[in-house]
Write a protein that binds this DNA or RNA. Structure first.
Length: 417
RNA sequence: GGUUGAAUGAUGACGCAGU
């Protein structure tokens, strides 16, 4: 048993899991397994995320009456939680005689990750009732889960609760809540939370700032967003902005129709030793297109290529969208061709822009032709694409065809994404 | 007895509301 178990460890160490399992099965047949055997096999299997195999091996242990240590069972619970297989994880949990801190931590965090908040709280209470206390990470998970479920007030209450219990929220804890507050439209509360972090000398990370700036931009509070950027640069919470920071705020200025300020920031990127990437360029290009500054957009498009930054599907979508809105369908189709040449795959958004553009030029037939082309490429039009076409057909007086299309849509269960 | 937590940027149609 001892030698074979050692061999299992060697095989697993060399990633020869199937061989290890074969050996293990032979050992089972010979009745030569003990708890060490399971350590040597199950731990690597979990690490390799071989969940089915792990579960099966665990079942054997049960049948054979070999007792597994809680620590080992926890490995399986953890691996299942990571794979979001919470029901399986709970199944294993129920087999554990004395679940411990790690068992509960894995379960509660896993349940949060799959948004099963009520279950998460149930097991947290279970944990507490056994005298085991959730740590900062678990609280952070719970706060995050509540935020995603739009239960921001409960998330805030939980922060207070953990502070009351003497736990020290980390930058992650605060960041998660700041994000939740922003997404819930409570940007001022988010700003206040940043202040509280600073007061507690909890250092905001670049994530914290980016999330906050993003929230302020979406709330159309560009001046506040800019202030936060300045705070990063020279305030007491000094933290180097990254390309995400700049792209976010550039997008905000573009959407606020303050593209002059966007350009000024664009120039500051290089001075900071950063380099605009494809997202930054796409952001600016989209902004220019939406301000009907098509030629400038095309200019930026050319210069990004000059600088060795390859446009992607989004970049092309922005340009093609701009051309379509401007009714320049000839140029839009040329862009579509070069998009393909450069290895960018047109997606639903590309086609929707084109369909919309052709419809607006009363070329509904061409638009329908694009749908045929899509089908040939295995692209399934969604509700947006089809609504675009329905709109075009209606405005072209082809009501029967539009009605037919709507029937097809509902038959297909075509729903908004 | 351990790998325990979270998070950030760009692109499509119509409609609604407002003008």
């Amino acid at each position: 048993v001892v030698e074979c178990s050692a061999l299992l460890e060697v095989l697993c160490g060399k990633c020869r899991y199937q061989d290890a399992i074969l050996l293990y099965k032979t050992m089972v047949r010979l009745g030569a397994v003990d708890s060490v055997t399971y350590w040597k096999l199950l731990r690597p299997l979990c690490k390799a995320k071989m969940l089915e195999e792990s579960l099966e091996v665990m079942r054997d242990a049960r049948t054979l009456g070999v007792n597994l240590a809680v620590a080992l069972q926890n490995k399986v619970v953890m691996a299942l939680c990571r794979a979001k297989r919470l029901d399986d994880a709970l199944g294993v949990y129920h087999e554990i005689q004395t679940p411990d801190f790690y068992t509960y931590t894995s379960l509660v965090q896993g349940l949060c990750r799959v948004r099963r908040m009520e279950d998460a709280f149930f097991y947290m209470n279970e944990m507490v009732s056994k005298g085991l206390f959730p740590d900062v990470h678990t609280f952070t998970s719970l706060i995050h889960g509540l935020c995603v479920a739009n239960r921001i007030q409960e998330a805030r209450a939980l922060l207070e609760q953990m502070v009351d219990k003497g736990l020290n929220p980390t930058s992650v804890t605060f960041t998660v809540l700041i994000d939740g507050l922003c997404k819930g439209g409570m940007v001022d509360e988010a700003l206040a939370l940043l202040q509280r972090m600073l007061q507690r000398s909890c250092d905001p990370s670049v994530f914290t700032y980016n999330i906050l700036i993003h929230g302020l931009c979406k709330a159309q509070r560009m001046d506040d967003a800019y202030k936060v950027l300045e705070e990063m640069l020279l305030g007491k919470g000094a933290c180097a902005p990254d390309i995400f920071t700049y792209t976010t705020i550039i997008d905000g200025f573009c959407k606020a129709k303050r593209s002059d300020e966007a350009f000024r920031l664009m120039e500051r990127i290089a001075a900071k030793g950063l380099c605009p990437d494809v997202v930054t360029y796409s952001t600016v290009i989209d902004g220019l297109c939406k301000e009907d500054r098509l030629e400038e957009a095309v200019g930026v498009f050319a210069s990004m290529k000059d600088k060795g930054c390859a446009p992607n599907t989004v970049t092309y979508n922005s340009i093609i969208g701009g051309l379509c809105r401007a009714g320049r369908m000839d140029r839009a189709m040329i862009m579509l061709a070069s998009m393909r040449e450069e290895g960018c795959t047109p997606d639903l958004k590309t086609y929707t822009s084109l369909v919309s553009g052709f419809c607006k030029k009363n070329q509904v037939d061409t638009a329908c032709g694009l749908l045929v082309e899509m089908a040939g490429k295995g692209l399934v039009p969604d509700v947006v694409t089809l609504t675009t076409l329905v709109d075009g057909l209606c405005k072209d007086g082809k009501l029967d065809e539009a009605a037919g299309l709507i029937r097809t849509m509902s038959k297909r269960g075509c729903t908004p994404t």
